[in-house]
């Protein structure tokens, strides 16, 4: 393999990987505060792209993206308030069915609003054939946007959880909900906040990736499966582990192309998910004892 080809695969892998990581982090944020897997996570990504594209008709690109992210955060909050908040100690199974239901609902709504066609935001810099050279590989500048924006998001999130009061409150909920309530933290509000946060980061990822992958009403499902794989692979609940797992999955997928036919790409990630679920259900980086204490 030449260096040029190697770096081409590497960059492709990092691009997919970081997108998976963001979706995986979205899963984790909600999992941490509620203990549930939100299967509508992929739909937030889809909505982000779609709303930004519609907004871009009237607003300049940066404003359209900001508006889309805020709107999707609002939708995330609404989803939580309408479907989750009023439930009293719901079972895991019930929550899973609810979130799958929400994802179908959102997808069908998107089909009616935007139709079945593919759309995309314009490239942030240059156009469809603009390229930059990195280590011998040629990539679209948009790839750098995706990697850059997602990295900043990951860093900002970890700072948020470490240093702000809100972030610490959310972490407290994740550690022990009863104890957090006793300390005067409104766990219900924290759950709403977690939905808003994961909707927001999903939407922003949906915007930056739109020029490369296109936005269509049904892209959410595929992303949710990959994001879920990544969240499980890293160990549910840990955002940084999701980043490592995401990059790993992305790189495996892109380098696999050189040895096995492209059609097996998805089979690889699904087999990986199954293998992890059987062999290390607590994830590559997770702690087995901690996982045993969790409900799900």
């Amino acid at each position: 393999m030449t260096l040029e080809l190697f770096s081409q695969y590497l960059l492709a892998g990092v691009t997919y990987g970081i997108i998976y990581a963001i979706v995986g982090i979205g899963f984790n944020i909600i999992y941490n505060t509620t203990g549930i897997i939100n299967f509508a996570q992929g739909e937030f990504v889809m909505l982000g792209g779609m709303i930004a594209i519609s907004m871009h008709q009237w607003l300049p690109l940066p404003l359209a993206i900001v508006a889309a992210v805020l709107l999707v955060m609002l939708i995330g909050a609404l989803v939580e308030i309408l479907f989750i908040r009023w439930l009293d100690r719901p079972s895991v199974l019930r929550m899973i069915i609810i979130t799958i239901g929400i994802s179908i609902l959102v997808r069908e709504a998107a089909l009616h609003i935007w139709g079945e066609g593919v759309r995309s935001l314009p490239y942030f810099v240059g156009n469809e054939i603009t390229t930059v050279r990195i280590m011998g590989a040629r990539v679209s500048p948009q790839v750098l946007w995706v990697i850059g924006v997602c990295t900043v998001m990951v860093l900002a999130l970890s700072l948020f959880f470490k240093y702000t009061l809100q972030g610490k409150k959310m972490q407290a909920c994740a550690a022990n909900r009863v104890a957090a309530t006793l300390c005067g933290i409104s766990t219900k509000n924290m759950v709403t906040l977690s939905f808003m946060l994961s909707a927001g980061i999903g939407a922003l990822a949906g915007c930056v990736m739109s020029p490369i992958t296109y936005s269509q009403y049904d892209i959410g499902t595929g992303l949710a499966i990959k994001g879920f794989t990544v969240a499980i692979l890293g160990g549910l609940g840990s955002s940084m582990a999701a980043v490592a797992a995401g990059l790993l999955l992305g790189l495996i997928e892109s380098f696999s192309v050189s040895v096995v036919p492209l059609a097996f790409q998805d089979a690889i990630s699904i087999s990986l998910l199954l293998a992890i679920l059987f062999l290390r259900p607590h994830g590559l980086f997770g702690n087995k004892d901690a996982a045993d204490l969790k409900e799900f």
Partner: peptide, 9 residues
């Protein structure tokens, strides 16, 4: 959604 790896190959 992305075929850049295969195109590179």
């Amino acid at each position: 959604t992305d075929l850049s790896a295969i195109v590179a190959k």
